[in-house]
Computed example of a mutant assay.
Amino acid sequence: MTTQLGLPASVQACLFDLDGVVTKTAVVHAAAWKETFDSFLRARDGAGFRPFTDADYSRYVDGMPRADGVRTFLASRSVELPEGDPDDPPDRDTVNGLGNRKNELLLKKIRTDGVEAYDGTLRYLEAVRAAGLRTAVVSSSANTVDVLRSIDAEHLFDTRIDGVVARTRKLPGKPRPDTFLAAAHDLGVEPARAAVFEDALAGMDAGRSGHFGHVVGVDRVGQRDALYAHGADRVVKDLAELLGGAE
């Protein structure tokens, strides 16, 4: 029963973000973004260089497609770059080039350090599926399949809307709700009967604007109040807290 999952009884499907909700990769993403932006800004600004911060990551980049993250953060520093092409090399100073530089760094870090899953989330996913609810993973990452396979969790999701699918379908990323709405559609469930699980503020915005039935914020970095302010119905530090009933 959904009440034993900490969800309203009307919920029929659960839509999970990947990085920071299912896997412990949000910190790896943040480190790759910092290295990318700091290198670019240091070369551009010289003595006036201001580093990329954790607050910058949360406000401008977290949860967004790579190109959107590049544009949004650079706009906050009054920097404009040409768009370039999606296959721009990582050393090219374009929006897509910087995004590809970040992804190259991310993959190196993942290959070096591996990927860990949040055990509480895996237990929650197993309980959700045992209760008969449908599941989707919704991520801006183009590496979602590889990451899920690395933690042997691909079988826990009925459908996947990730960066690759979003590009193919021309779906705008978070904070727009389109990727979550596509996941609900693919599962055959109305948004009002789906729950969203997110750790990013952009994901909270997507859940709220998509009028989903329940939005759970996962607070991994001490931003409980901000998650509520951006639309969470409930905030937990780990999804295992939801097992056993409602708040």
Rank of each mutant, 00 (worst) to 15 (best):
I161C: 02
V164C: 08
R77V: 03
V95N: 00
D152R: 15
M1H: 06
S39K: 14
F49L: 11
T25G: 02
V235C: 14
G120V: 10
S76K: 05
K237P: 04
F180Y: 15
G231L: 02
K34C: 01
L148E: 03
V189Q: 07
V28N: 04
V138S: 00
Q4H: 10
N103A: 08
K108Y: 05
K24P: 02
R42K: 12
V21K: 04
F52T: 11
R66V: 11
T112K: 15
D54R: 07
E35M: 03
L242N: 04
L122E: 07
F197Q: 04
A127T: 09
G63S: 00
A192M: 12
H211Y: 09
E154Y: 15
A47D: 14
I161H: 00
D178W: 01
P175N: 02
G173V: 05
A182W: 01
G63A: 01
T25Q: 08
L18M: 15
V165K: 13
S10R: 15
L125E: 11
S150F: 09
R193S: 12
L41T: 04
D238C: 08
L181A: 10
A206T: 10
A229C: 00
D68S: 15
D119M: 10
D178M: 03
A240K: 04
P191C: 06
V196W: 09
A240L: 05
G132W: 05
R101Q: 12
L156A: 15
A136W: 07
G217S: 01
H155E: 13
L15C: 13
A184I: 13
I151M: 09
V61R: 08
E80C: 09
F37Q: 07
A31G: 06
E198V: 02
A240S: 12
V196K: 08
L239M: 05
F197L: 12
S150P: 08
L148C: 10
K108G: 08
L122N: 00
H211I: 03
N103I: 05
A232Y: 04
R220H: 07
E190G: 04
V215E: 00
E190R: 14
D56Q: 08
G217H: 01
P65L: 12
G97Y: 00
S76Q: 02
G231A: 12
L125H: 08
G244Y: 09
L74T: 10
A136Y: 11
A131C: 12
Q12N: 14
L122S: 11
V164Y: 04
V115Y: 09
D54E: 13
L201G: 01
D54M: 06
E247K: 10
D85Q: 05
V27I: 08
D146N: 12
V28H: 05
P175R: 00
F73H: 13
H185N: 13
L107E: 04
K108S: 10
G20Y: 03
D146S: 14
V218F: 10
D146C: 01
A130I: 07
A229M: 03
G97S: 01
L239T: 06
S10A: 15
G6R: 14
